[in-house]
Amino acid sequence: MDEQDDDEVRRFNTLRQTGFSENDIQLIKIAQNTAPMDFLQAIKNEKHNYVTDQETWTMKTLVERSPLPNSVINVLVHYVLVIKKNSFLQANFINQIATNWSELEIISPEQAIKHVRSLVKEAKNKPNKKTNSTSKKSQPVRKETLPDWVDNPTEEVEDPEVQEEINQKLQDYLKRKEGEN
Results as ranks from 00 to 15, higher is better:
residue 74 N to D: 05
residue 39 F to M: 04
residue 125 N to P: 05
residue 64 E to T: 10
residue 73 I to N: 01
residue 155 E to N: 12
residue 62 L to Q: 00
residue 63 V to G: 00
residue 103 E to S: 08
residue 75 V to P: 00
residue 105 E to V: 10
residue 131 T to M: 09
residue 74 N to Q: 12
residue 108 S to H: 12
residue 46 E to H: 10
residue 80 V to E: 03
residue 50 Y to F: 13
residue 51 V to S: 01
residue 69 P to H: 05
residue 41 Q to D: 13
residue 138 S to D: 09
residue 141 V to Y: 01
residue 55 E to F: 02
residue 124 K to Y: 04
residue 73 I to S: 00
residue 100 N to F: 13
residue 79 Y to V: 02
residue 51 V to A: 06
residue 140 P to A: 06
residue 131 T to G: 14
residue 114 K to I: 11
residue 146 L to M: 11
residue 157 V to D: 04
residue 154 T to P: 04
residue 157 V to W: 02
residue 42 A to T: 10
residue 96 Q to I: 08
residue 123 A to V: 11
residue 145 T to W: 06
residue 75 V to L: 01
residue 115 H to Y: 15
residue 63 V to C: 04
residue 113 I to L: 15
residue 109 P to H: 11
residue 84 K to V: 03
residue 145 T to Q: 13
residue 130 K to V: 08
residue 89 L to Q: 02
residue 113 I to T: 07
residue 67 P to T: 07
residue 97 I to W: 01
residue 76 L to A: 03
residue 56 T to W: 07
residue 98 A to F: 00
residue 101 W to D: 00
residue 120 V to Y: 06
residue 149 W to S: 13
residue 82 V to Q: 12
residue 134 T to F: 14
residue 128 N to F: 10
residue 109 P to V: 10
residue 58 T to N: 02
residue 39 F to W: 05
residue 72 V to L: 05
residue 124 K to H: 10
residue 136 K to S: 12
residue 39 F to A: 00
residue 108 S to P: 06
residue 90 Q to I: 10
residue 72 V to T: 04
residue 138 S to L: 14
residue 55 E to C: 06
residue 144 E to R: 13
residue 113 I to C: 07
residue 151 D to Y: 09
residue 143 K to C: 02
residue 157 V to E: 06
residue 56 T to P: 00
residue 98 A to V: 03
